[in-house]
Simulated scan of single mutants.
Amino acid sequence: MSNIAVQRIKREFKEVAKSEEGAKCEIRVELVNDSFTELRGEIAGPPDTPYEGGKYHLEIKVPETYPFNPPKVRFITKIWHPNISSVTGAICLDILKDQWAAAMTLRTVLLSIQALLSSAEPDDPQDAVVARQYKENYDVFLKTARFWCSCYAGAPKQASNGFEEKIKWLTDMGANEQVAIRTLSSSSWNIEKATEELFS
């Protein structure tokens, strides 16, 4: 990795660690290896969203051409959000693609991803299934996103809405728990539909 990129990342590291905004918004970044090409980010789910109380881990891969090209970022923690793949963690966010500018920093990236959790863009989705649920059945979307937040991101457990029983029903029939959760979530917790999808 070029010296420019390494120096820049070292500086940005300090910026995230020392910024009041970083502490207040609960964003962190740490090295995975010594080459500065792979980092791990962490963001807290924003208040008044279904992600509140959750901690989300991100994989950040820094290209050789940084800061002239954006880092590649994806969620490691599973999340139910229209602009983030519920399967791969890929993120649909303009600054990680064509709207990137060399003046942007790791702090900008983490804060922008955190802001995306507060204001989804269902008309420009990364996950079409989640986006459809968000638009057609917002109440079920909120319950599902909260459930995923407590399942995967460590948020306090909410009232389960009968979700646990449905998951148990499918796992008792032989489905893998993660697959059961995703299938039920995708079918808006309709047990007949999920059963048919998994076992027919």
Rank of each mutant, 00 (worst) to 15 (best):
S86W: 00
I91M: 12
C92G: 08
Y66V: 09
R74V: 02
D98V: 00
H81C: 02
S85V: 03
V87P: 00
T88C: 02
P67I: 04
I79H: 07
I95C: 07
P70W: 05
Y66M: 11
P70H: 05
T65E: 15
F68I: 06
K97M: 05
S86H: 07
I76F: 04
N83Y: 06
V87W: 01
C92N: 14
I76L: 15
I76W: 05
P82E: 04
R74W: 00
A90L: 03
E64R: 13
T88G: 05
E64L: 11
V87E: 09
P71T: 02
G89V: 02
P63W: 12
V73S: 10
P63Y: 12
I79Y: 06
L96K: 13
V87N: 07
V62E: 13
W80L: 03
V73Y: 13
H81N: 04
F68S: 14
H81G: 03
K72T: 08
G89C: 01
P71G: 06
F75L: 01
T88H: 11
T88I: 03
K78N: 15
Y66P: 13
P67N: 10
P67F: 08
H81E: 02
G89M: 02
T88A: 10
I79T: 12
N83Q: 07
S85Q: 09
K61L: 15
K72P: 00
V87H: 05
L93N: 11
T77S: 12
N83D: 05
I84Q: 07
P70G: 03
D94W: 08
K97L: 06
D94N: 15
E64T: 14
P70T: 04
I91C: 12
Q99A: 11
N83W: 05
I91V: 15
F68Q: 13
P70V: 02
E64A: 14
I91L: 11
P71M: 03
Y66D: 09
F75W: 01
I76Q: 14
E64V: 12
W80M: 04
P70Y: 04
P71R: 04
H81P: 01
K72S: 10
R74M: 03
E64F: 13
K72A: 09
P67Y: 06
Y66C: 11
E64I: 08
I95R: 09
L96E: 11
P71F: 01
D98A: 04
Q99R: 14
P70E: 00
T77Q: 09
K97A: 12
N83P: 09
I76C: 08
L96N: 12
E64S: 14
L96C: 10
L96I: 06
G89H: 03
V73M: 10
V62S: 14
C92L: 08
I79W: 06
L96H: 12
F75T: 01
K78P: 11
I95L: 15
